[in-house]
């Protein structure tokens, strides 16, 4: 039996080196080059001197991506001679606040929509979902004027306040709340559990993966946001990382080495977090996208 299997197996292993698998390897290689090169280039160039950066550009070789004499002077300069450190801090504060408030507030209403039977709850849900059909770009001007009227323009809260309530997150969390078993609800009612404790102690702990999805997606949204902060913030000390980067890039005399270092700081930590949280990220989109 054993020998027979061995005799039969060689064709399979020969096929491994066939044209089909060779083209598969080539395809993988192309994908890796297209998707990894920008990151390698950012990371490599961040640790090069300006001189090396330009010397290593042509001809394109391994040297273009690997610093021969690694230096941290770009990062040091970025953090000491520009206001980039402040921008990073602002982005972290804004993202943290945004995520905390968004997960709290949207999960509360999502729970009510899933578990309180009241007249018009379908209508309310639809009215909330309807906000998804209007592009946020179409309401920037009144939002900006509202911020001025509330006298909170040019402050960090003005960056995240308008985006806390998020129909996408309400939808995602409502689906998860609604899927929890009726028994859970009934048992808690028999125990005399109040509606608020039902939310906080009974239901919420059961949808933690969905909360992580919502939090991470909101974090990415906040970290990536560019249009709104560039409108509502005029004070340099309150700028965020994306706006600070775009500014570095638009200077008359572009400091390429600092642009790379800034891109590195803006990107690499998020990508590393993503490697660990990608399951939640993907689930968040897939679960809400196809239902």
């Amino acid at each position: 039996m054993m020998t027979e299997a061995r005799v039969l197996s060689p064709p399979a292993s020969v096929r491994r080196f066939s044209f089909a698998s060779l083209s598969r390897v080539a395809l993988y290689l192309v994908i890796v080059v297209v998707f990894a090169t920008p990151y390698l280039w950012i990371a490599g160039s961040t640790f090069k001197t300006r001189q090396d950066l330009f010397d290593d550009l042509y001809p394109v070789s391994l040297k273009t991506f690997l610093p021969s004499k690694p230096t941290t002077e770009n990062l040091v300069e970025l953090f000491t001679e520009t206001n980039f450190a402040q921008a990073v801090l602002n982005s972290v504060v804004v993202a943290t606040m945004s995520v905390t408030f968004a997960v709290t507030i949207n999960s509360m209403i999502a729970f009510v929509l899933a578990w309180l039977k009241f007249p018009g709850r379908r209508l309310l849900f639809l009215v909330i979902l309807a906000t998804l059909t209007i592009a946020f770009e179409a309401k920037l001007i009144p939002l900006f004027l509202t911020m001025q009227q509330l006298r909170i323009d040019n402050t960090l809260p003005s960056i995240f306040l308008p985006w806390i309530t998020d129909a996408f997150i309400i939808f995602l969390l409502r689906q998860h709340f609604a899927e929890l078993p009726q028994d859970l609800y009934d048992a808690a009612i028999i125990d005399g559990c109040s509606f608020f404790r039902m939310y906080w102690q009974v239901m919420l702990p059961n949808i933690v993966p969905a909360l992580v999805s919502a939090a991470f997606i909101k974090f990415i949204f906040s970290w990536d946001s560019f249009i709104w902060p560039s409108i509502v913030i005029t004070d340099e000390s309150k700028t965020v990382i994306t706006v600070a980067l775009a500014k570095l890039f638009s200077d008359e005399y572009i400091r390429w080495e600092l642009v790379f270092a800034g891109s590195f700081v803006a990107t690499i930590p998020v990508v590393i977090i993503f490697v660990f949280l990608q399951r939640y990220y993907v689930q968040g989109f897939v679960r809400s996208g196809l239902k």
Partner: peptide
Amino acid sequence: LRTLILFPAVTSMVV
């Protein structure tokens, strides 16, 4: 591959 292809999704559009 999936992880790599999703890197750009979490990279900011400005970068």
